[in-house]
Design a protein around this nucleic acid. Structure first.
Length: 480
RNA sequence: GUCCCCAUCGACUAGAGGCCGAGGUCAUCACUCUUUCAAGGUGACGGCGGGGGUUCGAAUCCCCCUGGGGACGCCA
């Protein structure tokens, strides 16, 4: 890369940041970091009605959580500020005026209802819907007349008459050709004076000296319009790269019925940010090292390249995310994991404010191999916190026999005498019981487990006993 | 409807004409380790959407069909 790489992520603050959006942000960020370029965050808030400041906050906090830091943008500023499109309206107006003067754009007084009806009719008649150019050649007096009638005009870009096709040179897809006839004069400034998307992006990407426009494939068909704008305004073209879409489990576009589709949701469920980054990086891109799945951020940065991005869309697969997440959780630092798990435990009422951190740590350590995400911890630890043991039906069965009573008696007596509850000692103690009474391992461990936890499945018994502590174990045996 | 994109196991993917009798990961199933469950280990199942070309040779190149997705807004 001979020129300094400058890429941007340009979300519109009309909701939370969904997984497709983050993946786009991530690829831009990885690309920038790989080439030691700049990653710019630009807020595309030209939709006055739908944009919300709360949404901008959510997007920003999601990006921060994932560790996708930006070199220029809201909060950090930069040479090409401002980075919110609403604060850049003057730039758009200036360029629109220039196009107007050069006869490359024109005022259009058509009403929205009128256009909507035409569009519907075209669709019905199986024609290409698109603006018919009604206001293209208005005389000055006609224009005045319409203006005097109180109609607020939009400004439309006049699609130049071209013989040759428009070629989008895409870094991922190669050369994609569009016939100029499929394009219709589109709105660049709306009647409220605010620039429309296709215009604002072009102006901003140019002014902010963006070198690579990396975005979702849904923008591919917008690109020829933008290229025309670049050419007409004599702007140098950036490189384009259109990423494949990320689809919901059923192969359809993300929507509400797909459940958790926002970054926030996964954060709340207790997925680690590095899990999300790793997982999302693997949607549409693959490492050069054969068979590699678990990649650190550093490895991703080092290895990332657009050549290894797939063209085909990817389905978001929760199973694989969970596998990866469990992997990260098992290997994560225990202090960190514990701090992250505490809110879930508190929220469930398991944890009082003054619980001993070291003890909570041992609880997390005990069950962490059972977790796909941290919020699941509450389903695995009830017996450690509840004062009374809730016996499952199977546990009741286990505790019925005489043998069980005998085992528990013996266990009680031995435990009473113990001072040092290490896993090894407990393990040895239980085995001694086996020798004394002469029962199989299964008949030995199961009654104790049932009496202490109320369940017949769970983590290793000696560890549970160690975490529960002597007093509680004794109490539970007495009750049993 | 028109235009554009895409097409390898159920999912994510490797694959740049012979290294492919198609490899890996997740899921599933079996076995194993283990007091149980989880995790771990070993293995099995499973795929180049269809049809035509080009070529000595095609998952790979070309064409058609089919299927999926996107765009066609005073949304971005």
């Amino acid at each position: 890369m001979e020129q300094k790489v400058r890429v941007r992520f340009a979300p519109s603050p009309t909701g939370y940041l969904h997984l497709g959006g983050v993946r786009t942000a991530l690829f831009n960020w990885l690309f920038a970091r790989h080439y030691k370029g700049k990653f710019i965050l630009r807020i595309e808030d030209t939709d006055l009605e739908r944009s919300a400041t709360a949404s901008e906050g959510t997007i920003i906090s999601s990006l921060k959580w994932l560790g996708l830091d930006w070199d220029e943008g809201p909060e950090v500023g930069g040479e090409y500020a401002p980075y919110r499109q609403r604060e850049r309206l003057k730039f758009y107006q200036d360029y629109a005026d220039k196009l107007l003067q050069d006869g490359k754009a024109y005022y259009c007084y058509c009403q929205e209802e009128e256009l909507e009806a035409k569009r519907k009719q075209a669709l019905q008649e199986k024609r290409h819907p698109g603006y018919d150019g009604k206001c293209k050649d208005l005389t000055e007096s006609e224009r005045q007349q319409l203006a005097n009638s109180g109609r607020k005009p939009v400004i439309r870009f006049k699609i130049p008459e071209l013989k040759e096709k428009i070629v989008v040179n895409d870094l991922i897809r190669g050369e994609v050709e569009f016939s100029p006839e499929v394009l219709h004069d589109f709105v660049i400034i709306r009647s409220d004076g605010v620039a429309a998307y296709n215009f604002a992006v072009v102006i901003d990407d140019y002014l902010m000296k963006i070198t690579h426009v990396i975005r979702g494939e849904d923008h591919l068909s917008n690109t020829p319009k933008q290229i025309l704008l670049y050419q007409t305004l004599k702007f140098t073209l950036p490189q384009f790269a259109h990423l494949p879409m990320i689809l919901g489990q059923d192969g359809a576009r993300f929507s509400k019925r797909h459940g958790a589709t926002s970054v926030e949701a996964y954060q709340e469920l207790g997925y680690l940010p590095e899990t999300m980054v790793n997982y999302l990086a693997l949607r549409g891109w693959s490492p050069s090292e054969f068979g590699k799945e678990i990649c650190s951020i550093e490895e991703l940065i080092k290895d990332f390249s657009l050549d290894r991005v797939t063209k085909s869309p990817a389905i978001f697969d929760l199973d694989k995310l969970n596998w990866m997440s469990g992997n990260y959780i098992r290997n994560a630092d225990l202090d960190r994991l514990t701090k992250l798990a505490i809110p879930y435990l508190k929220n469930k009422g398991f944890l009082k404010c003054c619980s001993d951190f070291e003890w909570v740590k041992s609880v997390v350590d005990l069950v962490k191999s059972h977790l796909n995400c941290l919020s699941e911890i509450t389903d695995n630890v009830d017996y450690l916190f509840n004062s009374e043991v809730i016996l499952e039906d199977e546990s009741k069965e286990v505790l019925k026999g005489d043998m069980a009573t005998q085992v528990l008696d013996c266990f009680y007596k031995k435990l009473e005498k113990m001072d040092d509850l290490t896993t090894e000692k407990i393990s040895g103690m239980i085995k001694d019981i086996g020798k004394e009474i002469g029962v199989r391992c299964k008949d030995l461990f199961l009654p104790i487990r049932a009496a202490l936890t109320g369940k017949i499945h769970g983590p290793e018994l000696p560890k549970i006993i160690s975490v529960l502590g002597k007093e509680i174990c004794l109490k539970r045996i007495r009750i049993g």
